[in-house]
Simulated assay, not measured.
Amino acid sequence: MIRILLFSGLFTVIITAVQLSLNYQKETEELQTISQQLAETNAPSLARALWELNATKANDIGIYLMRIGLFKSITIKNENGDTMVFLGEKDIEAHQTSIKLQFEYSGRTGTVGTFEYQIVTDIVKRKIKDDFIIILISQFIKTFFVSIFILFIIHKLVIRHLNEISNWLNNFKPESSFSPLALEADKGSSNEMVKLKSAISEMGQQVHKHSTGLEKVVAERTAELEKLAYTDSLTGVTNRGAFLQAANEELNRSRRLSYDVGVMMLDLDHFKAINDTYGHDAGDKVLKQVSQAMANCLRKEDTLGRIGGEEFAVITPGADKRGMHKLASRLQQAIAILNFSFLPDNKNITVSIGYTKVSNDEDFKAALKRADEHLYTAKASGRNTFITDKGFLPRIVS
């Protein structure tokens, strides 16, 4: 608003100055024309007065001309250049006009002197100054009200809508619930602004829609990546890295809360023969069903992991020798009853198991290695059995 008024005021001053400059030049030229006509009209009388050497008459003519009010100064000189009459105040910066005074005597015309004068421009300057102030004030008032009117129209038709759009964009967050941009239009509102607001609102809705969809896709992809990072892709159970991490966390928790942790190592018997005889697809099917059968035998707090190939491991918090013995038996039975169409009727899948309890001051990998040693002892003992520490053998109740 202030900038517009300042620009309008500056523009008004420039236009007014140019206009008054032209007026000043025009009125000055008019004064010069009138003064020249007066000088030429009185030149014969002045020439006679100089011829007659009548300084009084020349002075009277000069006084008469000065009283008209157009002359600032008048100088009458004889033919020798001597000043006979000087009236008024001479301005060294003002323009001076000189007319030769000629007199005809006995059929001969000769120059008897000169008439020099300067016109009064102060009147014109004062008039121009007064006009400048009046025009400037009137133009400023007109410019002010015209600017106010134009700004009001612009605000009503454009700026108000732009402010609404700006506020809406500042508050727009793709992840938040979508609130469309208001499209109400007052009488006389620009259809283009309504279309612009509608287009921006539609754009915001599309951005919100895509943002919401993108967040969903990102969440799904993140879940998939997390699953890939912690889960065995074939069987769906915990992979080796995630299993070891879960085991260490469980071991640290058990030492804080003072409970035992057991670990089992399991290996499918003759699995290589299944792959070689029936193909890897059959082997994958065995691994999937065996993993599911083992998972169904475990408690919620137990953790099953695929260590590699046909080897699996189980973490059992709060383990005692009887509970781990029963779990080993249950795992063997669950695997033994699985049916596979590609196997003969009299053949089923068996598993060898080695298990142990993790000591309080023992590293988990050391306990896992000991369980693995028991596993290979079980396989060397004829397979389809389970082995544990000598001091950890439970008393079996039939």
Rank of each mutant, 00 (worst) to 15 (best):
N339G: 04
V351M: 05
I63R: 12
I119F: 01
F178V: 12
F11W: 03
Q36W: 04
L257W: 09
V261L: 13
S201Q: 04
A295P: 02
A293N: 08
V290S: 01
S21Q: 05
S166F: 08
V207H: 07
T388F: 04
D320S: 12
T235G: 04
T316H: 02
I141P: 05
Y376L: 03
D130S: 10
I76Q: 00
E52W: 15
L70V: 10
N59G: 09
S190H: 08
L183T: 14
R322F: 11
L268M: 07
T356Y: 02
Y259Q: 13
I335Q: 01
I76D: 00
P44C: 07
D276E: 11
I137E: 04
Q96H: 11
I119K: 03
T28K: 08
K300V: 15
V146N: 09
Y105T: 07
M193G: 01
D131P: 02
R48T: 02
R221K: 15
K187I: 12
K300R: 13
T238A: 10
K300A: 15
S190G: 14
R370K: 07
I68R: 06
F11N: 05
E362R: 04
A58C: 07
E373H: 12
T111E: 09
T356M: 00
E93C: 03
V158L: 13
R48D: 03
F11M: 13
P44W: 09
H210V: 11
K129C: 11
A219F: 03
L162C: 14
D232T: 03
R108A: 13
T231I: 07
A246L: 15
S291G: 09
S381V: 02
A58N: 05
A55Q: 13
L157K: 15
I353P: 01
E362Q: 09
G213L: 05
T109K: 12
K57W: 09
Q139E: 05
G283H: 02
F7S: 13
E164F: 03
K285E: 04
C297F: 01
D267H: 00
S35G: 11
R67H: 13
K129F: 15
E93F: 08
R160I: 03
G107Q: 03
I99C: 05
H155A: 01
L22Q: 11
I14H: 06
G204Q: 10
T303K: 11
A55D: 11
G283P: 01
D82V: 05
L298P: 01
A223I: 07
S352P: 06
E249F: 10
F145P: 06
S398I: 08
S138V: 13
L53Y: 14
M294T: 04
K321G: 00
T41M: 12
A219Y: 03
R126Y: 12
D122R: 09
A94Q: 09
N360E: 10
Q25S: 12
P180Y: 01
K187C: 14
K272G: 05
N54W: 06
I4C: 06
